[in-house]
Amino acid sequence: MALLSVENVTKRYGKTVAVDDVTFEAQPGRILGLLGPNGAGKTSTIRMITYITVPDEGQILFEDRPVGPWSQEQMGYLPEERGLYKKLKVGEQLLYLAELKGLARSTAKERIRYWLDRFDATEWHDMKTEELSKGMQQKVQFIATILPEPRLVILDEPFSGLDPINSSLLKDIVLELKEDGRTILFASHRMEQVEQLCDDICLMSNGKIVLNGALRAIKKRFGKDSILMEFDGDDAFLDALEAEGTIRVTNRSLHRAELRLLDGTPGRRVLEAALAHVDDLYRFQLTEPPMSEIFVSVVGEDAREQLSTDGAPAVAAA
């Protein structure tokens, strides 16, 4: 039985269709990645799941019951646009937000102590929120999200603005939550950041679901048509191959390149070219394409543009 099922949900704002007949499920104890470029309809979908807005058509079930105020207490939501009460002390803030989720004061206080300790932030308890740095505030908000021990944890762009140390701390805790039997819904346009964490994937584009299923199955379906290589020396041979139309370079830096084989080009064709040109080759791996490449394959070459623009989020509509 799915913990959460979104069934044929449509949401319009005026004339624009933000979410168009979307259907997917979140299985208990698994991590679901809701991926897609900005403006794909991820946040609109999440707002309906969290009962902030209601669908124009279709329905959303949590444990087979339509979502409502009751289900809000079972969900923890970290919105993409972070925000806290600036003037409140961290302890008061966490207590207030936990009480709004229906938590008893005494329980909340205990957990606040535990989590602040866990994040090495005990001394923040009596500090005003506005005195904390951005990164510290992010941690506070993450604590606020998981403090009520929600059954479904919804994290919208959880890694944006986090440094590598905090990113890996967050990943550890997410995996711990999963271990603990909680269901996690990630939403992100930075697919490479979350795909390794996800069990299931739901790709969205222009309000529609374009691909949906278990990560492993999807990766398998697209096969190993990508190459990851690390080397020293001249990389002009890549341009030559690309000009021939046999490969497309998807990611490239000084000593590293990711590329996709086109039209059934065999991997050894690239290997031979590389050996002929580079000084040293450390790594050459035939691999599955990254999720962003799969997204492009499904939606079409036009989508590449959408993915690379990491601009301002679309105007958040109610």
């Binding site: 969290t50 009962y51 902030i52 809000q72 919105p79 806290l84 600036k86 709004l100 606020a144």
Partner: peptide
């Protein structure tokens, strides 16, 4: 206005009506 511009309101309305 403060609640809205600090964006905390989205968290709050995911808990209460």
């Amino acid at each position: 206005i403060e609640e809205k511009t600090s964006r905390v309101v989205e968290v709050v309305v995911s808990s209460v009506r």
